[in-house]
Amino acid sequence: MLRLSSRNWCAPKAVAQLKGPVRQKSARSGSRGGTNQADQRILAQLYALSAHRKLPKVLKYSPEDLVKHNVIHRAWMFYKSEQRRERENALKVQYECMKEACDDLEQVSPELFKKATTRPRTVRFPREIRIPTDTPPNVPWDSSWKRSSENKK
């Protein structure tokens, strides 16, 4: 039993909360089983999607297969890290090229350098750019695009 200290003894609301769960009759329950047809249907659907009797056996590799699996995994990680390294190097080279061009431009023509390095207030990223997909669209390239008055440069 829960003992109440003298300090909160005279708090009837708190005592009522501490009494524990009270069995209440659900307003929706109509059938004898305690749940109605709609609830039973949802329960059946949840059961159909549950993991019960659907889990595969735990995969047990033999020592040889485990070595093979680890080799494949390590090779893939190495391959990806090589790709990442190449990409970072390419970006570094591109940045160096840009820096060299800017330093040279500053020496050659300060006016052009100022125009080239002032950042525009708003940068518009084009919505027309599409992400590469596995297969091309029905029309691979929109070559009949016309400059209208709306998209004037």
Binding site: Q94, M98, C102, P120, D142, W145, N151
Partner: peptide, 30 residues
Amino acid sequence: NIWTVSNTPALVQKLSEDRVYYIKSHILAG
């Protein structure tokens, strides 16, 4: 439909006294 990525040159080509500053841009349509 051309989108110029930045107004900063991406590369300089030094030809004795001349300079060519390359700007990168993408064609999106047309």
